[in-house]
Design a protein around this nucleic acid. Structure first.
Lengths: 294, 294
DNA sequence: CTGAAAGCGCTTACAG
DNA sequence: CTGAAAGCGCTTACAG
């Protein structure tokens, strides 16, 4: 921290009390225009910026929000999902003058320290996305009374609020579309099965296959991680097992639209409800048409 | 923030004074084992976490470091340079129990708010990378007495400390290698010319060309932004103008090694010196060999 | 080793 | 509209 001028000094220069000076910076209406002017002038001259720690200590607010993404950065930066997410969240918060603070724990030790950081009152609330299986952080924070909202249903049951899209429905829709197009030997490259999104999409795939009376066994399913690398490998494995596949439902594909929906929901001030599931819509692309095998 | 238990409550439960309790959390040696034990026990029971704002207010430290990357997130996440950078910095800080806080201003308004955030004492120091031309933020922070270190020389002159690699020397080396390999019609796709790295690499290219007595004019130079998309476009433009090119020096190529060097230097505790320029070494790849035009 | 006390820089009832 | 005063939750000389 820096030896900034204090409110006291600003007040003195402006010829008012500290209380009045403070009111100017908290945008209180109870200040005369003269006083306001004098304080603003003094602040400008001294290049005053209110000390955040002091303000937070009394107000209990920090005006910043943490976005926690517990993914290895390499993976994180390779995924087209995240830029949109970060940018969208950033815009929403920006409009409310909230500071977005990105936190990317890279190890268990990092997560432990992060819990301390968040518990100590550094932020007013926490958003967490890309949560895997048994990550205990959300519930621990929740247990401390910290506001936390998850992007994506956690894989287990949890009291923590979350926002999600209808992954199961979206997957079902997609696979039904393939079936309607005449495909019969439909495999799937799943997402990570320790994530709600991965589980739900696989479930949707199965539902559609089952409903159509098609046979499918585990050999038609191959795990991926929503990433491109794993997709290539998985595709290879599927083709080795079933050279005559006529379609593959790729769980990661749903991911593009998710960001948009997630953000749309963030924007709608959903602090009341606990669970928010948004409808999905099917986006039909060329590769699902007859003849394509891309 | 949350209604955490206070130090006072912990002290009471432990049967000691607030001062003694505090000493336990600041790891002061002046505490008896009994007292320490009692305080730790009480803290655990109450799930106590020291209030950061209060501690910061008296110590003046936050134990967190801001990493400012003023790039549009889309671009940012597409660049292989950043994950390594973030991960590396994260590791260094993690070892010292410092919290890394990523800040990505997306607009001028964001930058203005960010200046306030950083000036208000939220972090103990600021790292900034990927600085473009006339960004005033570094100097403004510097003017406030905030510790700031830039990754990469700023394009203009500035009193702000920075760490950089020898971009000019690296570029020269690369082009000399091409010349030694018999290339004569060597073009360059530059980096952004409002960044030190872009400028310096172009300068190195020119030096090598000139020293070899080769002719080169502006038509052999095409601006890029270190990104892949701009590279494709630039390459097209160069080939349109000079279909007989026999080599292209691509400024972005040097970028891979930069991250490594930058991080190596961060790790060497360089708070004393103002300017740090690291030597570059040439990495020869297949595409520079005779016959390649990749 | 321990505690009483001062103080970090703000905000905000409270009483004019 | 304004100011004196209390208080937010800590740390840290200071004096034992």
């Amino acid at each position: 921290m820096v030896s900034n001028p204090t409110l006291e000094e600003v007040a003195k220069l402006a010829g008012v009390s500290r209380a009045t000076a403070s009111r100017v910076f908290t945008a209180s209406p109870r200040v005369s225009r003269q006083a306001k002017r004098a304080v603003e002038r003094a602040a400008e001259k001294l290049r005053y910026v209110p000390n955040r720690a002091a303000r937070t200590l009394v107000t209990g607010r920090t005006d910043s929000i943490g976005l926690v993404i517990p993914e290895p950065t390499a993976f994180l930066f390779g995924d087209p999902f995240f830029p949109r997410l970060v940018r969208g969240i950033s815009e929403v918060l920006s409009r409310r003058l909230l500071q977005l603070v990105l936190l990317m724990p890279q190890s268990t030790a990092d997560e432990a320290r992060l819990e301390g950081y968040l518990s100590a009152g550094h932020v007013d609330g926490v958003l967490m996305v890309s949560l895997h299986g048994n990550d205990p952080l959300p519930e621990r924070l929740y247990g401390r009374g910290i506001r936390v909202v998850l992007g994506g249903r956690p894989s287990g049951s949890s009291p923590v609020a979350y926002v999600d899209v209808d992954n199961g429905g979206g997957a079902r829709l997609a696979v039904e579309h393939l079936i309607a197009g005449g495909r019969r030997r439909i495999a799937t490259i799943t997402g990570p099965l320790d994530m709600g999104a991965g589980i739900d999409r696989l479930e949707g795939y199965r539902d559609a296959i089952r409903a159509a009376g098609l046979t499918t066994d585990a050999s038609f399913q191959q795990a991926g991680d929503f990433g491109q690398g794993s997709g290539v490998v998985a595709m290879q494995a599927l083709l080795d097992r079933h050279p005559d596949l006529d379609a593959v439902f790729c769980a990661s594909d749903v991911g593009r639209e998710m960001a948009r929906l997630l953000l749309a929901s963030l924007d709608s001030e959903t602090s009341g409800g606990k669970r928010i599931i948004l409808a999905t819509e099917l986006v039909v692309r060329a590769s699902s048409a007859k003849g394509g095998r891309e």
